[in-house]
Design a binder for these strands. Structure first.
Lengths: 338, 338
DNA sequence: CTGAAAGCGCTAACAA
DNA sequence: TTGTTAGCGCTTTCAG
């Protein structure tokens, strides 16, 4: 004999006012008198009233929900970034509706569509590279969106991120500066991933500028897992001209690479220097601690939340927000032994 | 001069049928003729029609969205679990609405409430310990829910998980069997975390049964981070009676503990054995690889999705699903040197 | 400051 | 197999 959940009208009746007044009171509109507000709140509390979001969204054309499309959650990096975003949105009363495309940009269009179907007020995407159909849909339906982690070179899309290419150049330059000439790169999978591509391009560019080559067999593309990092370092160590410096496209790959060196009894950084990218917590805890590029994850999440909420609110000011990154030199890099 | 987004009625007009037919066609109801279905699909495609989820949810009383409340995403373990759940839900056309309570069970009631406001069809919770107010709200509003990761001892709540206590006992028993007598435990924070509490209790119980003590100063509670694992091991190594075996409540703590041993030049497992819990990817990649308890994360996510969808559908059969866990003996454990 | 009333876009009886 | 119609619960003009 359970009675149905209380609705707005029930609260109104109990409080002795009309439904509109309850709606206004619960939305904390200043026009409601203090006495009425209190009566309404008491009635709502007493009935255990929970607003019906779908009805509200239908009428108000706003769901207080933001959609996030990411490659995967099965990776600490994306998880941390998502967490930062979620926290920042939470502060503004927004919830995150989540979808993963598993590194498939065609699939991304589909999952973004299902997010839109659920009535998200805006969409946060990772990276600058997306299917044209996605951008077309977003424009057509006039859904506010935001690119994150990368800077959009074309200037056509709002974004908050940093320059992956320049950051990667910084790493390569530093290694050249301390004397390295034999390089290898363990890159992320570049297909459909502009961050990985920019990092690889940055390394190539910096080395070329210093007249240093990067042999094709010294560039390995690998998914972002420890195991892949180990495997990549394994084949690098087996190559004819062993590199003295291995630049990795992210910390997970770098940790895998260092682990493989440990397993083979190869000293890091004495025999080979290794660098990461992203500066995850583990990077500083490792022994030796990882030289890497610090990415402002928190700030990114916070800035992304601010900016997507601003576009929703129409206060769409800054279209491109660039964040600074820092090279953090720690224990996995040193000058090569001669 | 952008025209408003197409709605059902627009599709109907273009296809030359009525709105209900479009609704039926798009829902793939078998009663719609093939010819009509095709006309409707073509019209929808042509107009770039995207259904209005709020309207649908309001009318159909179903949002095809599941809410998940977790402690945090800022931890690979919860991220992986969430990912497994998300994937399994995705297969059934459901999306995941996310909220984190940051290890605060009072806050959990609030965030669960905001999930319900958004009209989720069901809620997945982590662990068996929750505020009474949360259970009351769920019952009152008749929202299907599911506890995961733990088994509910009271039998009052549907759950899918495993027996953390028994699993922890297995670890302790194994270490005793290979000769250890001096134990320490790096436990998770037990307040508001029944998984952590059960693991600690299991270790205590197993040791007591074998007449082995666990000194208070050999039990350290620490949040699940590498840094905390290192710090805990640091203080353990400094204690008067140094343990020969350190049982950690999860892999992250265990890896931190092993790292601290490396940093101090203390051999693992020769000088001290270390065990983890959860069997994250990193556990097998580490050098030496971590002895740990394998938790069936994928199966858990999949089973959780099946079960919550079943309760929504009313096919609420199995209320308690117990999954098996395995002790995985690898390189960080060995008999103590005498 | 509060009330009356219209309708957001869709689904599901019911009818044909 | 398809059409007609009545709301789902809420917000928001417009009056008062």
């Amino acid at each position: 004999m359970t009675k149905p959940a209380a609705k707005l009208i029930d609260v109104a009746r109990l409080a002795g006012v009309c439904n509109a007044t309850v709606s206004r009171a619960l939305a904390r509109e200043p026009s409601v008198s203090a006495a009425t507000l209190q009566r309404v709140e008491e009635a709502a509390r007493q009935l255990g009233y929970v607003p019906h979001g779908a009805a509200s969204a239908l009428r108000a054309r706003r769901s207080r929900t933001i959609g996030a499309v990411l490659p995967t959650l099965d990776n600490l990096l994306y998880a941390k970034a998502t967490h930062a975003l979620q926290k920042a949105l939470d502060d503004s009363g927004y919830l995150l509706l989540l979808a993963c495309h598993e590194f498939d940009l065609t699939n991304e269009v589909k999952v973004a569509r299902s997010l839109i179907e659920r009535g998200v007020d805006g969409i946060v995407l990772i990276g600058a590279e997306h299917d044209d159909a996605l951008f077309a849909m977003l424009a057509d339906l006039e859904i506010p969106y935001l690119l994150t982690w990368s800077l959009d070179r074309s200037g056509r899309h709002p974004c908050v991120g940093f320059d992956n290419r320049v950051a990667a150049m910084r790493v390569a330059d530093y290694l050249v500066d301390i004397g390295h000439r034999e390089f290898a790169m363990i890159s992320g999978v570049v297909a459909g991933n502009d961050r990985a591509r920019a990092r690889l391009a940055g390394v190539r560019e910096a080395l070329t500028a210093r007249d240093i080559g990067l042999a094709p067999q010294h560039v390995i593309e690998a998914p972002y897992t420890l195991a892949e990092g180990r495997a990549a370092m394994h084949s690098l160590l087996a190559s004819a001209t062993r590199p003295t410096a291995v630049i990795c496209a992210n910390d997970v790959l770098a940790m895998g690479a260092v682990l493989e060196c440990h397993a083979q009894g190869i000293a890091v950084p004495d025999a080979v220097s290794v660098t990461g990218f992203d500066d995850m917590e583990a990077a500083s805890i490792l022994v030796p601690a990882l030289t890497t590029v610090r990415v402002p994850m928190r700030e990114l999440g916070y800035a992304a939340a601010q900016q997507i909420l601003a576009s929703i609110g129409g206060t769409d000011s800054a279209r491109v927000t660039e964040l600074a990154v820092d090279l953090i030199v720690r224990g996995t890099t040193a000058s090569p032994r001669r």
